[in-house]
Lab assay of single mutants.
Amino acid sequence: DETGKELVLVLYDYQEKSPREVTIKKGDILTLLNSTNKDWWKIEVNDRQGFVPAAYLKKLD
């Protein structure tokens, strides 16, 4: 059920640097789980959840 889920576009590649982070690729469109922290957003990638720098993402309307 995708209702109410926010999507984000990945602006730059990011390689995870800790187990709490996930790797993302430029151009991916992913589900945003939590954006309350202005610097690190929690997203879902391939059934994995983790954090990436918010500056690497853009919210889609």
Rank of each mutant, 00 (worst) to 15 (best):
D1W: 10
E2C: 14
E2F: 13
G27W: 05
T23N: 05
L9M: 09
D39F: 15
D28K: 06
E2N: 15
L32I: 05
T3E: 13
L9V: 10
R20I: 12
G4R: 15
D28M: 15
K59L: 12
E16T: 07
E44D: 07
K42I: 13
V10I: 03
A55S: 13
D61Y: 09
P53Q: 01
Y12W: 12
P53E: 02
A55Q: 13
Y14T: 01
Y56M: 10
N37H: 12
T31M: 12
Q49T: 12
K58G: 06
E44G: 06
G4K: 15
A55P: 08
L60K: 03
T3G: 14
P19I: 09
G27T: 02
E6M: 14
V52D: 01
N46W: 09
V10C: 10
Y56C: 13
V22Q: 04
R48W: 08
V10R: 00
V52N: 00
L60A: 04
E2V: 14
K25H: 14
S18A: 11
G4E: 13
K5D: 08
F51R: 03
T31V: 15
S18G: 11
K26A: 14
K42G: 05
K17I: 08
E16K: 11
V22W: 03
K5T: 11
K17E: 07
D61M: 10
T23V: 03
N46M: 15
A54C: 06
K17M: 11
D28H: 11
W41A: 03
L32F: 02
E6D: 12
E6R: 13
K38N: 11
L32W: 01
L32V: 07
K58F: 07
K42Q: 14
G50S: 03
D28N: 09
G27R: 02
T31P: 15
E16F: 07
T31Y: 11
W40L: 04
Q15P: 06
K26D: 03
D39E: 12
E2I: 15
L57D: 01
D47Q: 12
A55F: 11
Y14M: 01
V52L: 01
D61R: 09
S35G: 11
N37E: 11
P53F: 03
K25Y: 12
G50E: 04
T3P: 13
V45Y: 13
A55N: 13
